[in-house]
Design a protein around this nucleic acid. Structure first.
Lengths: 104, 104
DNA sequence: ACCCTTGTTCGACAATACTCGAACAAGGGC
DNA sequence: GCCCTTGTTCGAGTATTGTCGAACAAGGGT
C-alpha cells in the first residue's frame, strides 16, 4: 500500500499547526520525541484503534512523521531534523509546555 | 463591556496552536508582529467584519493578543513578550514560513 | 489452511469551526 | 437629536473534525 508522506516544506503552516493542535496527537508527538521508532499500537491514549489510525494519518500527512512498514506492523518516527530545520524552536516550545492534566 | 483576556500560561497549548492554525488569523498575527497597535478595521483580509471579529476573539481568548478600547475603536496588539517567554521560538518559527500564496 | 495480530478504511454520528447578513451597542461629529 | 463609523453579537448554513464499531487487508505462526 502506498503511504502518503509529503515533504514538510510543502505542507502549509496552518496544516502543521492544526496537526499539533489536538491532545491525542500531542501525546503521540511527546512519545515520538523520546526518539526512535514506535509501532502504532504503542499509542494507547484512550481512543479506539480507528481513531488512533486517524490521528497518525493526520500527523503523517502534515509531514511530521515517517512510517516504515514491516510485516503487519508500522513503525512511526518523528521527522525531527526537518521539523527543527523548517520550524526552529516549534517542537521544543510546544513540548516544553505542560501536558494537559489527566487528573484534576 | 468586559473583555475576556486570559493569561497565556493558563491557556492549553492546543488552544494556542489551534488559534494559529488558520490563514486569516495568521495574516492578522503577521500584521500584529510588525509591532504596535492596530484598530480591528485594519485587518481587511477578504472576510466580513463579523468573521474578522470572530477571529480576533479567538486570538484574544487564546491569550495571544491584548485589546484596548478607545471610543468606538478597539486597538489590538500582540502579547509578544509573554508568547516568546512561554513558547520561545514558536512565533518566529511560524511567521518565518512563507505566507500562503494568494496567486498561483 | 486456519486463526490471530496489527492496522486501515468505511460509513455514521456528534461536536466544532468558519462564514455571512442582520440586528444591535456605543461614540463622535455636525 | 441625528446620523455615521466601528465593532460585537445572534442565528443560521455549511464544512470540517473527532469519535466509534464494523468490515476489510495483509502477515506471521502453528
Amino acid at each position: 500500500m502506498e503511504i502518503h508522506e509529503p515533504e514538510l516544506r510543502e505542507v502549509p503552516v496552518t496544516v502543521v499547526l492544526a496537526a499539533l493542535a489536538d491532545d491525542v496527537r500531542l501525546q503521540i508527538v511527546r512519545t515520538l520525541a523520546e526518539g526512535g521508532e514506535y509501532a502504532c499500537g504503542t499509542f494507547e491514549f484512550g481512543v479506539s484503534k480507528a481513531t488512533r489510525s486517524h490521528h497518525l494519518r493526520v500527523l503523517r500527512e502534515a509531514g511530521l512523521t515517517r512510517t516504515r512498514v514491516a510485516g503487519t506492523s508500522r513503525y512511526v518516527r518523528l521527522r525531527r531534523e526537518e521539523i527543527d530545520r523548517l520550524y526552529p524552536g516549534l517542537l521544543d516550545a510546544v513540548l516544553s509546555r505542560a501536558a494537559p492534566a489527566v487528573t484534576s
